[in-house]
Design a protein around this nucleic acid. Structure first.
Length: 980
RNA sequence: GCGCGAGUGGCGGAAUCGGUAGACGCGAAGGUUUUAGGUGCCUUUGCCCUUGGGCGUGGGGGUUCGAGUCCCCCCUCGCGCACCA
C-alpha cells in the first residue's frame, strides 16, 4: 500500500496551502503559517479528512464480509467474532442535519471502530427511512414530486454524513423508497397476509395449513358446516377473517386535518395526531389491520430477553397492558324480550357481590337493545332520581341525548374533572349471577369501548371511579373486602378478608383477595357464567393510510374482497402521478371521509390480471402502508442488501443475528436511537420480526438485542423584548445577562430549530474545526444517554487537544515525525497502560466522555514531559484516539510508518504489572477530615501505617492534646484517627 | 394523581465497591510569543478568612470512624402514564 499524504510530496508543501489557506487576506496568519507550516489547523484537518475519506471509499475499508451470498468472504471473517451495530436510520428532511442528529451515529461509529481494533467483524451501515408524511408534506409545500425532493434530501444527507467520516459499509445502504427495497416490504406483507395465528401452537402459520385443516375436517368450521358444503365466497370469508393482515370495519382514529387514519400508537394522550398535532376522531371505517394482539403475550414476555433501558421496557409493558382477571356474564333481557348477557371483564371477580350497578360504554352494541321505551320503577319502587333520567321523558331520549353530549366531548374535556362522572340509566336491570340481585344498567363515558368488553360491573366499595359515580347517582355501596380499622378512605383497594359475599349459590366470606379470586373463578367456570382470562390494552395495528407517499399494498380486490398479488408480480410500483396531494379537511370536520390519493389514478387502480384463472378485472388497493412499514425489517436487509431471490439469506441472518451468537433473543448487538420510538417503531419491528421467526425466515426471536437511547442535544434560543427570536450565534454574554446588537435578550433552553434561530449544522463545525473535532466534541460533552446543551464556544477545547496530540508526534516547523524508538520511562509507560485499561473499560460501557478525558490526561502528561515521545507511547495513543478522531489518527498512523489503515490494527492490552503501583498516597484523616497525605508502599503493614499516620504533622496538629480512641486503617490508602 | 429519573464550581460534567469531592473541557485572571488583535504556549482558578483553618454535592434529619454515594421526610426540574375496570 502506498500514497498516504506524508513524505516529500506532502500536501502542505504544495500550492494548495496558500491557495485555500484560512490565511488568505490575513497577513498575521500568513506569517504564522510560515513559522509553523505543519500546525494542525482547520484547513489541514479538512485536507486530511478529505484524503482519508476518499481513500476509505476507494479501498472499501469498512465493507463487512458475509459468510454466504454475493458479499461472502469467509476467509476475511476467519475466527473473528461478529458484531452488528446499528443506528435508527434517519428521515431525510429538507432542512438537513443539525448537530443534534449525528450524535448517535458518531457514537455507534466510535464503538464500531473500537470493536474493529479488538478483532471483531463489525457490520455498520446506514440507510434512509424515506416514505411518509413529512416528506410528502414538504413536497406538497414546495410543489415538487416527493420522489425528487426525497431523493435530493437523501443525497444531501449522504454528503453531510460522509463529511463526518462515518465508517459505513456503503454497499449495504438502503432507502425504503427504492422499489428493490419495498418489493420485499410488500413480500413480507404478503407473508403476513397469508398467515394466521394458531393459538394451540402459539405461533403464526401459513394460511395454506389452515385451509388444509378445514378441508380435512380436522378443524371444524365456525358454524359447524362441512367445508365442502361451503361456497367459495363463504370459504374466503372464513379464511380472510383469520389472516394476520385483514380488513375490518371498526372504530378507528380519523384525522381530517391530516387526511388519513392513524394507528393508536400515533395518537397522543390528548387525542391528537403525533404528526402535526391535529384532532383525531373515532370513526367506524373499513381499514387494513395487523393482528398485533395475537402477539401481545410474547411481545410482553420476550422483553425479559432484551438488554434495553428499563424505561423503554416499561413503556412497552404499559402499552401492552396485561390484566389478569375474569369475564362474567350478567343475564339481561332486551327490549324485544330476548335473553342476553352483558359480558364484563374485571380484575376483581372476588368483589362481584358488591356489584350494585352496571355500566356500558356509550358505543356498546347492546345499548340500543337495552334502552327501554318507558322508565321503569326505581329499585325501591319509587320514582327514579333525576340524575338517572337526565331529566328526559324516556330512556331512549335520555340515551340519545347523552350520546350526543359525549360524542362532541374531546378526550381532553373528558379528563377535566375525573371525579365528576356522567351517565344515564338505560331503563333495564341485569341480574347478578352470584345472588340474582337486579341491578340497574347505565351508559357512562367513564367506561371505554376500547378496553376489555366495553362494559363493567360497578363495585363502588372497591373501586374509586365506581364510588364516585355511585355517590352522584345515589346507588348502594357494599363493601366486600374488610378494610383495616384505621382506613378512612372511600373505595378500598387493598387486601383483606371477604365480607358480605355469600348467597345460596356461593360464598367467599373469610377468604383473602387472592383466594377469593381463585374460588369465584372456579365457581364461574363450573356454572358457565364466566371464565378466568387475561385482557390486553394493546389493539391491532391499523395499517392503511390515505396518502400517496408510501408502499402500495400488493393487493387487488374483486367483488368479494382482497386478493394477494402473486410474488412474481412484485414490486407493485408506486405510480408516478401528477396529483399526489392528500385530500385534507378542516381539522375539526369529523364528518369528512378518508380518500386515498391513489384512488384518483384510475388507470393504475383498474387492472386486468391473470391470477391463475384467466384474465379478470380487479381494482388495486389504493391505500398505502404507514411509514413504519419500511423500518419494520431494515435491519435484515442490511445483511443481504442485493439479494434478488430472498429478503435475506437465512445463513447470513443466522451469522449476524442468530441466537447462537447473540444470546437467547438473537438480534442486533447494539441499536442506538432516540426514546421517542418506544411504542411505535420498536413495537412494530418486534411484531414483524416475530412473524418472520414463526414462519421460519429468521432464527432470531427479537430484532434488537441491546438498545441504547442517546440523549437529545439541546440549545439555547434568545428572544428580544417583543418575543421575537434573534440569531443565537450573534448573542453575547454580559455581566447581567445576554445581549444581541446591544439590546438585552432573554434566554430559553430547548430544541434546535430553524424558527428558533439557533440551528448549528455539522457542516459549519467541520468548516471551522474539522470533522474529527466535531466528533470528539460530541462524544466528550457528557454521558451519551443524557441530553445536554450545545455550546459552540466549547468546541475549541477538542480542537486544541487534537492540535496537542499532533504536536507531540509531528514537528510543526519541519513536518517530520518527532517520535523516537527509545523505550519510555517507567512513569510514562504506566500512564499509557492506565489509559489503555481505562479507555477499554469506558468504550465497552459506551462511556465515551470519560474515555476521552483519559486520552487528554495521557496527552497532557506527554506534553509536560517536554521530550520526544517514544513510539511505544505514540502508537497506542493514536490507536485509542482513532475511534473518535479517525482521520487525524490515520494520518498520524501513516506518518508513524504504517502502510495499512489503523482501523484493523490490534489495540494493545494493558499490562496488569504496569497497572499496579509500588507506592500510593495514603489519606490520613482525623475524625473523618483530611489532615495529611503520606506516600507509602502498597504493601505497608497496618501497624507501620498506624505509626506513620500518628506521627504525621497533620495529625499531631489536628489532634492537639486529645487522646486517640481508635484508629481505622484501610491499608494502604486510608487511615482515620478517631479522637476520644 | 401514579410511576421512573435527576439536582455537584460561573458553565458542560467526573468521582465504577461507603474512603482524597470537583478528573477532563469551556469560561475567567495573570504571564509569554507577536507591530497588534487572534492563534499557540505557561501558570492560577469551589467559596470564605490567610502559611494553617472554616464551609461546601437542592433543603432538613438519621446510620457510620467516615456519606455526593445508604435510610427517612421535604423542595425543584425532566420524562412516561393518566377514568385500562
Amino acid at each position: 500500500m502506498t500514497s498516504t499524504i506524508n513524505g516529500d510530496e506532502d500536501f502542505l508543501m504544495s500550492d494548495t496551502t496558500t491557495e485555500h489557506g484560512a490565511a488568505a487576506g490575513d497577513p498575521g496568519a500568513d506569517q504564522q503559517a510560515e513559522r509553523v507550516p505543519y500546525r494542525y489547523t482547520a484547513q489541514m484537518a479538512g485536507e486530511i479528512e478529505a484524503f482519508w475519506q476518499d481513500r476509505w471509499e476507494k479501498e472499501g475499508t469498512f465493507e463487512a464480509p458475509n459468510p454466504a451470498g454475493p458479499m461472502a468472504e469467509p476467509e476475511k471473517i476467519g475466527d473473528r467474532p461478529k458484531l452488528y451495530v446499528m443506528d435508527m436510520f434517519p428521515y431525510p428532511s429538507g432542512a438537513g442535519l443539525h448537530v443534534g442528529h449525528p450524535l448517535g451515529y458518531v457514537a455507534t461509529d466510535c464503538y464500531a471502530r473500537y470493536k474493529w481494533m479488538t478483532g471483531h467483524n463489525v457490520l455498520h451501515t446506514m440507510g434512509f427511512d424515506a416514505f411518509g408524511l413529512p416528506a410528502e408534506q414538504y413536497a406538497v409545500q414546495t410543489g415538487q414530486h416527493p420522489r425528487s425532493t426525497t431523493e435530493r434530501n437523501i443525497e444531501g444527507y449522504r454528503a453531510q454524513l460522509r463529511r463526518l467520516g462515518l465508517a459505513y459499509d456503503r454497499r449495504r445502504s438502503i432507502a425504503t423508497i427504492d422499489p428493490a427495497y419495498y418489493r420485499w416490504t410488500q413480500w413480507i406483507f404478503l407473508q403476513i397476509f397469508n398467515s394466521w395465528y394458531d393459538q394451540d401452537q402459539d405461533k403464526a402459520r401459513p394460511i395454506g395449513e389452515l385451509i388444509a385443516e378445514y378441508e380435512s375436517g380436522r378443524r371444524p368450521t365456525p358454524d359447524g358446516q362441512a367445508w365442502s358444503d361451503l361456497s367459495e365466497v363463504e370459504r374466503r370469508s372464513i379464511i380472510d377473517s383469520q389472516r394476520l393482515a385483514y380488513m375490518s370495519e371498526q372504530p378507528v382514529n380519523w384525522s381530517p386535518g391530516l387526511g388519513t387514519v392513524l394507528s393508536n400508537e400515533e395518537v397522543t394522550a390528548e387525542g391528537r395526531s403525533e404528526r402535526g398535532n391535529f384532532p383525531v376522531f373515532k370513526r367506524n371505517l373499513t381499514q387494513w389491520m395487523m393482528r398485533m394482539t395475537a402477539y401481545a403475550e410474547r411481545l410482553l414476555d420476550d422483553l425479559d430477553l432484551l438488554d434495553w433501558p428499563e424505561p423503554i421496557k416499561l413503556m412497552q409493558r404499559n402499552w401492552i397492558g396485561r390484566s389478569e382477571g375474569a369475564r362474567i356474564d350478567f343475564p339481561v333481557s332486551t327490549v324485544d324480550g330476548e335473553q342476553q348477557a352483558i359480558t364484563v371483564f374485571t380484575t376483581r371477580p372476588d368483589t362481584v357481590f358488591g356489584a350494585t350497578y352496571m355500566v356500558l360504554a356509550p358505543e356498546h352494541p347492546l345499548v340500543d337493545r337495552l334502552t327501554r321505551l318507558q322508565w321503569p320503577a326505581a329499585p325501591d319502587g319509587g320514582p327514579l332520581p333525576v340524575a338517572w333520567t337526565g331529566g328526559q321523558p324516556t330512556p331512549a331520549e335520555a340515551v340519545a341525548e347523552y350520546r350526543r353530549q359525549t360524542e362532541t366531548k374531546s378526550d381532553v374535556e373528558r379528563q377535566v374533572d375525573l371525579k365528576e362522572k356522567t351517565g344515564v340509566f338505560v331503563g333495564s336491570y341485569a341480574t347478578n349471577p352470584v345472588n340474582d340481585e337486579k341491578i340497574p344498567v347505565f351508559v357512562a363515558d367513564y367506561v371505554l369501548m376500547g378496553y376489555g368488553t366495553g362494559a363493567i360491573m360497578a363495585v363502588p366499595g372497591q373501586d374509586q371511579r365506581d364510588w364516585d359515580f355511585a355517590e352522584q347517582y345515589g346507588l348502594p355501596i357494599i363493601r366486600t373486602v374488610q378494610p383495616p380499622e384505621d382506613f378512612d378512605g372511600e373505595a378500598y383497594l387493598g387486601d383483606g378478608l371477604a365480607i358480605n359475599s355469600s348467597s345460596e349459590k356461593v360464598s367467599l366470606d373469610g377468604l383473602d383477595v387472592a383466594d377469593a379470586i381463585r374460588a369465584i373463578i372456579a365457581w364461574l367456570e363450573a356454572n358457565s357464567v364466566g371464565q378466568g382470562m387475561v385482557t390486553y390494552r394493546l389493539r391491532d395495528w391499523l395499517f392503511s393510510r390515505q396518502r400517496y407517499w408510501g408502499e402500495p399494498f400488493p393487493i387487488v380486490h374483486d367483488e368479494h374482497g382482497p386478493i394477494a398479488v402473486p410474488e412474481s408480480m412484485l414490486p407493485v410500483e408506486l405510480p408516478d402521478v401528477d396529483d399526489y396531494s392528500p385530500k385534507l379537511y378542516d381539522p375539526n370536520d369529523k364528518d369528512s371521509q378518508p380518500e386515498a390519493p391513489l384512488a384518483r389514478a384510475t388507470d393504475w387502480v383498474e387492472v386486468t390480471l391473470d391470477l391463475g384463472d384467466g384474465p379478470k378485472h380487479y381494482q388495486r388497493e389504493a391505500n398505502v402502508m404507514p411509514n413504519w412499514a419500511g423500518s419494520c425489517w431494515y435491519e435484515l436487509r442490511y445483511l443481504d442488501p442485493t439479494n434478488g431471490e430472498l429478503f435475506c439469506d437465512p445463513e447470513v441472518e443466522r451469522y449476524w443475528m442468530g441466537p447462537e451468537w447473540s444470546g437467547d433473543s438473537g438480534g442486533v448487538d447494539l441499536y442506538v436511537g432516540g426514546a421517542e420510538h418506544a411504542v411505535l417503531h420498536l413495537l412494530y419491528a418486534r411484531f414483524w420480526h416475530k412473524i418472520l421467526y414463526d414462519l421460519g425466515y429468521v432464527s432470531s426471536k427479537e430484532p434488537f438485542r441491546r438498545l441504547f437511547n442517546q440523549g437529545m442535544i439541546q440549545a439555547y434560543a434568545f428572544t428580544d423584548n417583543r418575543g421575537a427570536y434573534v440569531p443565537a450565534a450573534e448573542v453575547e454574554e454580559t455581566d447581567s445577562g445576554w445581549e444581541w446588537h446591544g439590546q438585552p435578550v432573554n434566554r430559553q433552553y430547548g430544541r434546535m430549530g430553524k424558527s428558533l434561530k439557533n440551528v448549528v449544522t455539522p457542516d459549519e463545525v467541520c468548516a471551522q474545526y474539522g470533522a474529527d473535532t466535531f466528533r470528539l466534541y460530541e462524544m466528550s460533552m457528557g454521558p451519551l444517554d443524557q441530553g445536554r446543551p450545545w455550546e459552540t464556544r466549547a468546541v475549541v477545547g477538542s480542537f486544541r487537544f487534537l492540535q496537542r496530540v499532533w504536536r507531540n508526534i509531528v514537528d510543526e516547523v519541519t513536518g517530520a515525525t518527532t517520535v523516537v524508538d527509545t523505550p519510555a520511562d517507567e512513569e510514562t509507560r504506566k500512564a499509557v497502560h492506565r489509559a489503555i485499561d481505562g479507555v477499554r473499560n469506558d468504550m465497552e460501557a459506551l462511556r465515551f466522555n470519560t474515555a476521552i478525558a483519559k486520552l487528554i490526561e495521557l496527552n497532557n502528561h506527554l506534553t509536560k514531559r517536554d521530550a520526544p515521545v517514544p513510539r511505544e507511547v505514540a502508537e497506542p495513543l493514536v490507536q485509542l484516539l482513532s475511534p473518535f478522531a479517525p482521520h487525524i489518527a490515520e494520518e498520524l498512523w501513516s506518518r508513524l510508518g504504517h502502510a495499512e489503515t489503523v482501523t484493523f490494527s490490534s489495540l494493545p492490552e494493558a499490562d496488569p504489572a504496569l497497572l499496579a503501583e509500588e507506592t500510593v498516597v495514603c489519606v490520613v484523616q482525623v475524625a473523618g477530615k483530611l489532615r495529611d497525605r503520606l506516600e507509602v508502599p502498597v504493601s505497608i503493614s497496618e501497624d507501620e501505617l498506624r505509626e506513620r499516620a500518628l506521627a504525621s504533622p497533620g495529625v499531631r496538629r489536628a489532634l492537639g492534646d486529645r487522646a486517640v480512641r481508635t484508629v481505622v486503617i484501610r491499608a494502604p490508602r486510608l487511615v482515620n484517627v478517631v479522637p476520644a
